[in-house]
Amino acid sequence: MVPVRNILVARDLADASDAPLSFALACARQHGARIHIVYGALQPGDPDNVPPEAELPDEVFLETLRASTPVSTEELEIQFAVSRGVSPVQALLRYATDQQVDLIVTGSRNHSALRRLLGRSLSQQLARTAPCPVTIVREEARA
């Protein structure tokens, strides 16, 4: 079995489900791994092509990331991070490479059939291009 020392949890600030985080925490406990909870943000740039939130400083994203993540940092080694790139996928992949991540855990949303067909979901793009295994955790059913 390949050792798992670093687990990246791709966290979406707009709709953060706890299912991928719960899965990653269980894996980290089992393997004694470090958790990296990461938000892939867009690089600031041309205001015509980049949304205004890309201009926010990383500290704003980190504060939101910590506040929206229900986890005790006492039980495991947990690191919160913002990674910037031309796309969220590119930002997450760069972080995964730089930090020698052994496993990426991300959620799956109910996207339209066309979007799935075009392969434009973050989880699908990560699974196709990541330098390590990717686990896609289905979101919990909502009542």
Rank of each mutant, 00 (worst) to 15 (best):
R94K: 13
S22T: 12
L92H: 01
A143R: 13
A143Q: 11
A54C: 10
A41L: 11
S87G: 08
S83D: 11
R138E: 06
R115A: 05
V105A: 09
I136F: 05
D58N: 10
N6M: 08
T129K: 15
E75Q: 14
A141K: 15
L42F: 08
I7L: 04
Q43Y: 09
S83Y: 13
V82Q: 03
L92E: 00
A96D: 02
V4C: 05
A143Y: 07
P44Y: 15
P51I: 08
L62T: 01
G119K: 12
R84Y: 12
V60L: 06
V89L: 00
A91C: 10
L21Q: 01
E59T: 12
P52G: 09
A130P: 04
S68A: 13
F80D: 04
P47S: 12
N6A: 13
Q79W: 09
V2T: 14
A141G: 13
R120D: 11
A10E: 02
E63W: 05
E63C: 08
E74D: 15
S22Y: 09
Q125P: 00
G107R: 02
P133A: 13
L114H: 05
P131Y: 00
T97R: 14
P20L: 06
F23T: 14
R142K: 10
T135P: 00
A81S: 14
Y39K: 03
Y95W: 06
R109S: 08
R109N: 05
H36S: 09
G45V: 10
Y39T: 11
L25A: 14
D102A: 10
G32C: 11
G119N: 03
L117M: 15
C132R: 08
D48I: 12
L56G: 04
T97W: 05
H111E: 15
A10I: 08
P3N: 12
A91R: 03
L118N: 04
L21W: 01
G40I: 06
R29P: 01
T129W: 06
T129A: 15
N6T: 12
H111F: 11
R5D: 10
P51V: 04
I37S: 04
F61K: 00
P52T: 01
T69H: 02
A81I: 01
P47Q: 07
S112F: 02
G107F: 01
D98L: 12
L13C: 04
A127W: 04
L92R: 00
E53H: 14
A19L: 05
L92A: 10
H36C: 08
S108R: 13
I136E: 12
P70S: 06
R116G: 10
A10S: 10
D102G: 00
E75W: 11
V105D: 08
Q124H: 03
Q124F: 02
S22E: 15
D15Y: 03
D48W: 14
A24R: 04
L122G: 00
L8D: 01
E77I: 09
H111I: 06
G45N: 06
E59R: 13
P44E: 14
A14D: 13
L117A: 15
S83K: 02
I35V: 15
T97F: 10
V50P: 02
I136W: 06
L122Y: 03
V101P: 00
A141L: 09
P44M: 11
A141C: 09
P51G: 04
A16H: 12
V86M: 11
L65Q: 08
